[in-house]
Nucleic acid binder design. Structure first.
Lengths: 193, 193, 193, 193
DNA sequence: ACATAATCGAGACGGTACGTCTGGTCTTTAC
DNA sequence: GTAAAGACCAGACGTACCGTCTCGATTATGT
């Protein structure tokens, strides 16, 4: 319940600002994004944005999280290969987010404060989902006991981000299958088989 | 031979500008870097910078390439594991470049024109070096015939960049050895052994 | 009533900017005047100046009009010679404005938009005052009926500006008397006498 | 005879620069005039201009003096009224020079050094011509003995420049006749007649 | 009802850095 | 040995946004 006095925050304005951020992103790209432009498109005051978000990247992060909220479910198909395949397939399907993701990463690289927020609110969420998959596989004995799961995670997300950023090679389901095969082969070495 | 009339470009000024860029980077970080600051520190006119470079990222890229030119040699120790290990060890040793590299990557993510230049003049150079190592290994029969070398490259550089950017896990020689072991294991499957 | 939304214009800042313009003018002269300098001296942002004035000349015109607002009254002494004498004496007394006036005229000669503003807001005001004197004289029969009053006005202000600009001859009360005498003699020819 | 060693100054380049100045003036106006633009249009180096002229105004002054060199002859028709009439008619015929003249005057008002040069090389030349007319008239007894010739000169050129600058009233032969009539009337008062 | 308090759109404010331009100097090659 | 070409420094120019602020209107809570 909202027991504080004063005019409550306008949910409508919140939505209009996030929508405007997405709109500006699609129309002009992350590099050309300005708080001034978002405010103008949303018909909102700049102060209203600064009151609730600390930077334009913060707005975009919120917009992206809201936009892509229930998008990726964690698969549980009974085998590492199948789960990995499904996870990567679901992830790669969101390739339309490429400009948004690379823009946010750029901001994170330039602004240490946003770096932490981006990592905690987005990257570590995806990371935890994939870690769950690996841990279930370990529980089933599909991984060698001394496997460095963190390295496996970094390999998956490393390839994902590297191709996202460089845009020099496809990021499709075939890559997902290849990567899943390579990782199961490598991680299974010495496992139960 | 330089047979054009007019005063030739000053090599001294070029060096002073690149040095000033490095200096500003070390003192204030990439995010705080300004063309104005570089010009002031170098005792050069802003126009002189804009005459020869198209953006501050362009200056930093030049400075970085010059600074780290002969730094990384391509090892050739006779086995994939040893070469990979040496390559990664040499690469990880340059961790002082982290702020510069992440700054350049941020710029590349925001500016499509610089994206291409950064990829072609820096990233693809390193990539070609590592590809050479893998191809020599393939020649020696150390890789399965159907190995997707490009994917292996993306794994190595993906992990490298992912950890460089997120800074959530160490980027040291131990990781290098682990990664080399994992890749040789995965890629050697079905090879001559 | 001021019912527009948004922060209202700061009267204090307006005054500080105009005062700074006068200060810079006195200290450094019109040629050395810069918007940057005015903003710095006023403790105001450059954008604030550009928001309300279209050029530095516009600022100086406002400052001058405000500064010299009630300065010159229109004399009414009962005879053309006396009125003319008094008008010119009062005008010539403002010789301290010479650098400002010549600066504004220079600007008007270079910028057509400012040309009109300078003419309408300053020159034509002075011109109307003198025209009043001549018209009262005509009403008293002191001028020949076919006198071209506009030409008389141009003679007075022409000599005034010509000497102001060239600075080759004095612009004092004696010249005023001489000019008044010459004009009354010329314009009275054929008058009632 | 040209006895200095080395390649002589290129008369062709000199002419091309002056012509380029006139061309830029006509096409873009004095305010938009730049040394860079003149150099580019003339196909000359900027240094070539700075070597021979001290400012863009200096170039324009030279160009104008050359362009309008033999344009105005001093009339000698035997009477003040006729001479004055002819002088003003000839002067007013050059109304095409208005943009150039006002531009030069603007420069003179902003730059004290050019002020003197403009005055000495142009204004005082015209002034001397008109003074000759008045002095011949005085010799013929057409002027009152105590006439202030300098004031008469200032009236003529004052009206001329005032109308040139303000552009609020015509500057044609009729004004010339009116002014001549008024001055002869005023100056002749008390003359021999 | 009325005071208090926090919201909102709007936009002015003091600033920073941008990328372009200019004046004037300096250093080469071309003639 | 001069002229032309063009690189150089220094710094003014007007522009775009920044993040903060102030305004008047609006919308809730608490007496």
């Amino acid at each position: 319940m909202d027991r504080r006095p004063g005019r409550p925050r306008s949910e409508e304005t919140r939505r209009k600002i996030l929508a405007a951020a997405i709109g500006e992103l699609e129309q002009r790209g992350y590099g050309e994004l300005t708080v001034e432009g978002i405010a103008a498109r949303a018909g909102a005051g700049k102060q209203t944005i600064y009151r609730w978000w600390s930077s334009k990247a913060d707005v975009v992060l919120d917009a992206m999280l809201e936009h892509a909220a229930a998008a990726i479910a964690v698969p549980d198909d009974g085998s590492l290969a199948a789960d990995l395949d499904a996870f990567l397939a679901a992830t790669f399907k969101q390739r339309g987010l490429r400009p948004v993701l690379t823009g946010l990463m750029a901001e994170a690289l330039l602004d240490p404060a946003f770096h932490d927020e981006f990592r905690d609110r987005f990257l570590f969420g995806r990371r935890a989902a994939l870690r769950g998959i690996f841990e279930r596989a370990a529980g089933r004995g599909e991984l060698a006991p001394d496997t460095d799961v963190e390295l496996l995670l970094d390999i998956v997300f490393g390839v994902l981000w590297y191709r996202l950023m460089l845009d020099h090679a496809p990021l499709d389901e075939q890559v997902g299958r290849e990567l899943a095969a390579l990782l199961t082969a490598a991680a299974g070495n010495g496992g139960i088989t």
